[in-house]
Amino acid sequence: MSTFFATALPAAQAVAGPQTYPTGALYVIATPIGNLADISLRALHVLQLVDAIACEDTRHTQSLLRSYGLERPGAQLLAVHQHNEAQAAQGIVERLRQGQRIAYVSDAGTPGVSDPGARLCAQVAAAGLRSIPLPGASSITSALSVAGCVPPQGDSAGFVFHGFLPTKAAERQAAIAALAQETRCVVLLEAPHRIHDLARLLTVLGARPVTMAREITKQFEQITTLPAQEAANWIAQEPQRSKGEFVVVLHPMAAAQNDAADHDRVLQLLLAELPTKTAVKLCAEITGASRNALYERALEWKNAG
């Protein structure tokens, strides 16, 4: 156990112990995404209390538990990950029917959000049993909380969580083209080996602000907001900027950008059927947009892949 957490377990018992913890229930627990101090007192108490812990990676979870001075026999750690979730959930449901308390944790953050857990909770619900959330760390809400995404005046707040883009080039480009039309805030996740490609694709969003958040809560955390068209250059300036897991927040579209998005949509439809010059000419006549600006936009998309 880390000496930093020597007082954490007694505190968890004192604060969370007197609360009610039903039997025959699944406890879905958020775990730290980097900083171990982000664990909640209730999470520590429940991880001591439950009969078994279902987890995405048993070795990772065992290491996490030991950081807090929690020891669990290997038999009490149940592997439930994306490759076996549906089948493993059946065994969890049977344990719950026997009156056991079972916890579920993913490797980091909140289960069921771009992590396994959704199918497990669905099967628990289908069996008429309870899933109890223990909220905590989430890279998504952490990035949103500091991005400063203010919706245009008169528009309602809100965001769209898209998660990871497809891995195939054509599908990624199509996904970005579709998201470019979304006026609300959009949250993307990306791995370090694909962040260069994502930043390059974001160029088509022009001056629309994006927040690049990497290594959230970790030692080398870095969060910056800049125009989408500058994202690729920003990453290329320093090698370390492409390291770590990323949350990318596309800010809400301003009114002027909304008009531009309408122009883009018309231009994309025309480009799919017509030569560039003809598509640009017709788009300018339909939308009233500048022909030169539309032509430059078409070249941006061509250069982006």
Rank of each mutant, 00 (worst) to 15 (best):
residue 2 S to E: 11
residue 4 F to K: 10
residue 4 F to G: 08
residue 5 F to I: 14
residue 7 T to I: 13
residue 12 A to Q: 11
residue 13 Q to G: 08
residue 18 P to N: 09
residue 19 Q to G: 03
residue 20 T to W: 07
residue 20 T to H: 13
residue 20 T to Y: 11
residue 28 V to T: 12
residue 35 N to L: 12
residue 38 D to Q: 02
residue 41 L to M: 10
residue 45 H to G: 07
residue 46 V to Q: 07
residue 52 A to T: 11
residue 53 I to G: 08
residue 56 E to Q: 13
residue 57 D to V: 02
residue 66 R to G: 06
residue 67 S to W: 02
residue 69 G to Q: 03
residue 72 R to A: 11
residue 73 P to Q: 07
residue 74 G to T: 05
residue 76 Q to D: 15
residue 77 L to K: 05
residue 78 L to Q: 06
residue 79 A to N: 06
residue 80 V to T: 06
residue 84 N to M: 13
residue 87 Q to A: 15
residue 87 Q to P: 04
residue 89 A to Y: 08
residue 100 Q to S: 08
residue 101 R to D: 04
residue 102 I to E: 03
residue 102 I to K: 03
residue 106 S to F: 07
residue 110 T to Q: 04
residue 110 T to K: 02
residue 111 P to I: 06
residue 113 V to D: 01
residue 117 G to V: 07
residue 120 L to D: 07
residue 125 A to M: 13
residue 126 A to S: 15
residue 127 A to S: 10
residue 133 P to D: 09
residue 134 L to M: 15
residue 135 P to D: 13
residue 136 G to D: 14
residue 147 A to N: 00
residue 147 A to T: 00
residue 148 G to L: 00
residue 152 P to H: 01
residue 154 G to K: 00
residue 160 V to F: 15
residue 161 F to I: 03
residue 162 H to F: 09
residue 168 K to L: 15
residue 168 K to P: 07
residue 169 A to L: 15
residue 170 A to G: 11
residue 170 A to H: 15
residue 172 R to D: 02
residue 176 I to F: 03
residue 177 A to W: 00
residue 187 V to Q: 00
residue 190 E to A: 02
residue 193 H to R: 14
residue 196 H to L: 13
residue 200 R to V: 02
residue 201 L to C: 06
residue 205 L to T: 01
residue 206 G to A: 06
residue 209 P to L: 02
residue 216 I to T: 02
residue 220 F to I: 14
residue 222 Q to H: 10
residue 222 Q to T: 02
residue 229 Q to K: 10
residue 230 E to L: 07
residue 231 A to W: 08
residue 238 E to R: 08
residue 241 R to W: 02
residue 246 F to E: 04
residue 252 P to N: 04
residue 254 A to T: 05
residue 256 A to C: 05
residue 259 D to I: 06
residue 260 A to N: 01
residue 262 D to G: 08
residue 262 D to N: 10
residue 263 H to M: 04
residue 270 L to C: 11
residue 274 L to V: 06
residue 276 T to S: 09
residue 281 K to H: 12
residue 282 L to G: 02
residue 284 A to I: 09
residue 287 T to L: 11
residue 289 A to C: 05
residue 291 R to T: 12
residue 292 N to S: 09
residue 292 N to G: 05
residue 293 A to W: 11
residue 297 R to Y: 08
residue 298 A to V: 01
residue 302 K to F: 05
